[in-house]
């Protein structure tokens, strides 16, 4: 229950950042998708099934403000969570450099996914040049800042474990 409450607080904090604070303080090109970072963290630290459920939940939350039809973000996040949990076992994603690469790749995947769905739905879309600039900047920002955020989340987990808020099995 405590774990659930903590995760709820984390997700709520990220949601508020993205819907209220980000648009005021952070330019669009430099935004790191906090949900993506949280999702990667959950995929690394939770069982795959739980991570996938989290992916669906985070995706549904993200979908609330979108003008698109269909469950766009749940599907994108589902793919990311699946990939992250598989690669965590098979590749050395403990390394911050690999994490940077992985987060950059996921941001790229997210942007291309959204763009593809826009094209498929025959919706209007931003000029390609502008889209590519935003995508490239976001990818680089995610690769640079993402591992730091992941490290912060890991530190938070360890701290909570130390305080006895998390059970030992959670960390395992």
């Amino acid at each position: 229950m405590r774990t659930f409450f903590l995760y709820f607080l984390l997700i709520l904090g990220a949601y508020l950042c993205q819907t209220v604070l980000y648009p005021i303080f952070v330019v669009s090109e430099l935004r790191v998708d906090l949900f993506l970072v949280l999702l990667v963290h959950f995929s690394f630290s939770l069982q795959r099934s739980k991570a996938l459920v989290m992916a669906l939940f985070l995706g549904l939350l993200m979908d609330v403000g979108l003008p698109l039809k269909g469950l766009v973000y749940p599907l994108i996040y589902f793919g990311v969570a699946l990939l992250a949990s598989m690669l965590w076992q098979n590749l050395n994603l403990h390394s911050r450099r690999y994490q940077a690469f992985f987060l950059g790749l996921c941001t790229l995947f997210e942007g291309v996914g959204v763009r593809t769905i826009l094209v498929l739905q025959d919706a209007g879309f931003a000029e390609t040049s502008h889209f590519l600039v935003v995508l490239a900047t976001r990818t680089i920002t995610a690769a640079l800042v993402g591992p730091l955020l992941l490290a912060g989340l890991e530190r938070l987990d360890q701290w909570l474990l130390h305080l006895g808020v998390f059970r030992e099995s959670q960390e395992a």
């Binding site: 949601y15 993205q18 819907t19 209220v20 980000y22 648009p23 669009s28 935004r31 998708d33 949900f35 939350l61 993200m62 609330v64 403000g65 979108l66 003008p67 698109l68 973000y73 942007g111 959204v114």
Partner: peptide, 13 residues
């Protein structure tokens, strides 16, 4: 109340 959380769109609530 809020802006689009993804940053890819220009929507508000």
């Amino acid at each position: 109340v809020a802006f689009d959380p993804s940053g890819w769109f220009q929507t508000i609530l």
